[in-house]
């Protein structure tokens, strides 16, 4: 046979074919498939974690910006509040000052008015008292002729009657 020189041999050929097919099947099922799976899984995992990291970073940046914005807002608000409070305080102080001044003024005025009234009353009283005494003294002078001693006594009597006598009463 022609093939004999080369060593062509059908049983060996078929045997090798079976060998190869078994190798192919075993490697595919027990070798290539699990490895492919794990490689894909790893690639996926890496991709996922990278995406996650990217997302986290973005989120963080977003949060950072948000915080910054909030802080600025709060600062602005605080400043506004402070200015307002200061102005309110100023106003209150002014008001308080004005009120106190007004009150003091009122008290002084009232005190003055009272004083004046008392004074008037006193003067009035004195005047009346004095007029009475004078009248009394005049009556006595008119009623009696007087010598010097009598005169003095009369005056004294009159005074006693008017002021002291009343007090005794």
């Amino acid at each position: 046979m022609e093939g004999q020189g080369l060593g062509l041999d059908l049983p060996t050929f078929i045997g090798q074919l079976v060998n190869f097919l078994i190798l192919l099947a075993v490697l595919t099922i027990f070798g290539f498939k699990p490895i492919r799976k794990i490689l894909d899984e790893r690639a996926n995992r890496i991709k996922e974690s990278m995406e996650l990291a990217e997302a986290t970073k973005k989120e963080y940046e977003h949060a950072q910006a948000e915080v910054q914005k909030r802080i600025q807002e709060a600062q602005k608000q605080g400043e506004a509040l402070l200015t307002e409070a200061r102005s309110i305080g100023e106003r209150l102080k002014e008001e308080a000052k004005a009120g106190a001044r007004r009150e003091a003024q009122a008290i002084i005025e009232k005190a003055q008015a009272d004083l004046k009234r008392d004074q008037d009353k006193m003067i009035d009283h004195l005047r009346r008292e004095f007029a009475g005494i004078a009248i009394l003294a005049a009556e006595k002078v008119i009623h009696e002729t007087l010598d010097k001693q009598k005169h003095l006594r009369i005056i004294e009597e009159t005074i006693r009657e008017s002021a002291l006598g009343k007090k005794v009463n």
Binding site: L23, V26, L27, F30, G31, F32, P34, I35, I38, E41, R42, R45
Partner: peptide
């Protein structure tokens, strides 16, 4: 050899 190589590598396959 090939079978042993691949099976032993893939048997306890880890991430």
């Amino acid at each position: 050899i090939l079978m042993l190589l691949f099976i032993s590598a893939a048997r306890k396959i880890k991430l």
